[in-house]
């Protein structure tokens, strides 16, 4: 009997741990629900106030409107429904001590995971895609993002983050101040060299890590480098030349290397045929354009 109790004890402990964890998560959620409901209430007030500025009667821009034809009708309906829904969540959460629970668990919030995963993607979209050559932007993003999660080493991660976000800060300063645009006017695609420098730094740091950590790390780093380079190298030509989708920004690699190579050596040559067109036909052709 005693042995049975002993053997059940760890399982019971595990069960109670799970239960405690669940309760904790529930408490956190109630706290967050309270804050969320406040955001919903504010958002609904914004929708309602904004929709009330839309024409509900009279003539605007030559169009006579009655309340039931108003463009603000649905937004007003949505805003009102959101307000009621927000109020309901707020009331429910408040009766369960939502605000107190939020304050209690606020210090436990650790945004590192979100800032790294979300920050990586957002900076890729808003900085790299907007201002740099798509190939280079994707290459650097993949080097950083795969390196961060796949190699999963704290010291390496810190160095990767420093280099990546350093580049982001430099880019933001350069382009928002107008220096970047000026530099690109002076020398074509000059700013793309920033990403090349960033890529070289990231690769150097990874290679140092590989040398320090041995065989397994070398294999992993090699994999990161190959995938980061090969993936955009396949993706860009596929979209650019097969699906005829121009890249968001074409610079040092896409414009100078890929486009030049493709249109000089690989693209099907334009065939010019001699045609005996009459004057009328030539005139119609001219008119068409």
């Amino acid at each position: 009997m005693g042995r049975e109790i002993m053997s059940n004890h760890p399982e019971q402990m595990q069960e109670s741990d799970k239960l405690a964890q669940k309760t904790l998560e529930q408490e956190r959620l109630i706290g967050w629900d309270f804050v969320f409901s406040i955001v919903v209430l504010l958002f609904s007030v914004f929708i309602v106030s904004n929709s009330l500025t839309m024409p509900f009667s009279g003539t605007v821009g030559g169009v006579t409107t009655t309340w039931y034809e108003s463009p603000g009708l649905l937004p007003l309906f949505i805003g009102t429904c959101l307000f009621l829904a927000g109020l309901s969540v707020c009331w429910k959460s408040a009766t369960e001590n939502g605000w107190a629970l939020f304050c209690q668990h606020f210090s436990e919030i650790n945004p590192t995971g979100f800032l790294l995963s979300g920050g990586g993607i957002i900076s890729y979209i808003f900085v790299f895609i907007s201002w740099y050559d798509f190939f280079l932007g994707s290459f650097v993003f993949l080097l950083f993002y795969i390196g961060l999660y796949y190699l999963d080493d704290e010291k390496l991660s810190r160095r990767l983050i420093a280099i990546y976000y350093g580049t982001i800060i430099i880019s933001v300063v350069l382009f928002l101040s107008g220096v970047g645009a000026y530099a690109n006017r002076v020398v074509d695609f000059l700013t793309d060299w920033i990403l090349i420098a960033c890529a070289v730094l990231l690769i150097t740091v990874m290679l140092q890590f590989a040398t320090r950590k041995g065989q397994e790390a070398r294999r992993k780093v090699r994999r990161v480098l190959i995938i980061s380079c090969v993936f955009p190298a396949i993706l860009v030509p596929t979209f650019r030349y097969f699906l005829l989708v121009p890249m968001p920004k074409e610079g040092l690699v896409v414009e100078r290397v890929m486009n030049t190579t493709y249109y000089t050596y690989l693209a099907p040559k334009k065939q010019v045929e001699d045609g005996n067109l009459s004057d009328d036909q030539l005139q119609s052709l001219d008119d068409a354009f």
């Binding site: 993949l142 993002y145 994999r223 990161v224 995938i227 993936f231």
Partner: peptide
Amino acid sequence: PQTLFMPLIAV
């Protein structure tokens, strides 16, 4: 590994 796959999905 997923950590290798997911960044490619982001692109």
